[in-house]
């Protein structure tokens, strides 16, 4: 279970993105009938990359000042970013019903990802504490 969360899932994510990138570039160059779909996929990946840059480079300073502010700004950035990407790609149109369902979907996904990150962090902390304990016992 530990290996699945620590290695398998992140590696699968990377592998999937790499595969989509290669397929999209190939199909765009070949001018395939699904060209638009692949352009949209590239926009999604590019947007995700940009949002991650905002999270890791800009929001880091906000996280350092206040955890609550950091969480709020991070959640807002992703909410607005993902919403904008969906509108840009034309996958959804703007309506109140869509907005409500997107908000609910987003909150569920954000909660799951946040919980997963906390789980990984907890595992890291436990591992370090185990080694520290062993280190201290060996010294005694």
């Amino acid at each position: 279970m530990k290996k699945i969360f620590k290695n398998v899932i992140p590696q699968t994510g990377l592998f999937t993105i790499a595969l989509i990138l290669i397929t999209a570039i190939y199909n765009i160059i070949q001018n395939s009938p699904e060209k638009l779909l692949y352009i949209n996929l590239l926009i999604i990946i590019g947007g995700g990359f940009l949002l991650n840059c905002v999270e890791y480079y800009i929001l880091t300073s906000v996280w350092q000042t206040s955890a609550k502010k950091g969480l709020l700004f991070s959640c807002l950035t992703w909410y607005v970013g993902v919403g904008a990407l969906m509108l840009i790609t034309g996958w959804v149109s703007f309506s109140v019903l869509n907005l409500i369902s997107f908000t609910l979907d987003f909150l569920i996904a954000y909660l799951v990802i946040t919980r997963y990150n906390i789980y990984r962090l907890k595992m890291d902390a436990e591992e370090i504490n185990r080694y520290l304990e062993k280190r201290n016992t060996d010294r005694k």
Partner: peptide
């Protein structure tokens, strides 16, 4: 270093 614990924004 006594111990570490999870902290916000994927820090310890």
């Amino acid at each position: 270093l006594m111990k570490v614990e999870p902290f916000s924004n994927h820090r310890l």
